[in-house]
């Protein structure tokens, strides 16, 4: 995953004529499997000598949300089941929490 990230960051750095990438801001949903520490660790190893060496990775996490048809509202389920905390109806998962995006980068020219 870190290798894929570096490839994209290098691509955008080239396109933007950046001399250095100082920060990378990711949006990662709770339903996506991406561990913060593992990503940072591998990324630091891979970026030595690249345009992204020393770049700070910030990961914004979005929770997995469900829609309750009875309450007609969104909820974040408890750990043991998917029931709506107010009425116990089992709702329907929404797209929230499935994202895995490079939101932005901070660069020096």
């Amino acid at each position: 995953m870190a290798a894929f990230l570096l490839e994209r960051v290098e691509h955008h750095a080239g396109r933007l004529e950046a001399s250095k990438v100082t920060a990378i801001n990711l949006l990662v949903g709770e339903r996506s499997c991406l561990g913060d520490d593992a990503l940072r660790f591998s990324f630091d190893l891979l970026t030595a000598g690249t345009v992204a060496e020393g770049a700070r990775i910030t990961i914004r996490r979005t929770p997995m949300r469900f829609h309750c048809p009875t309450c007609d509202g969104a909820y974040v389920p408890a750990e043991a089941d998917f029931a709506c905390p107010s009425c116990l109806t089992i709702g329907q998962v929404t797209d929230d929490g499935g994202e895995m995006l490079i939101e932005s980068v901070e660069i020096e020219r």
Partner: peptide, 18 residues
């Protein structure tokens, strides 16, 4: 706020190459 540093929006799936 840092001079010379620019924030650029990307908005692209991380696994776009895959």
């Amino acid at each position: 706020s840092v001079p010379g540093v620019k924030l650029v929006t990307i908005g692209e799936r991380l696994l776009v190459d895959n």
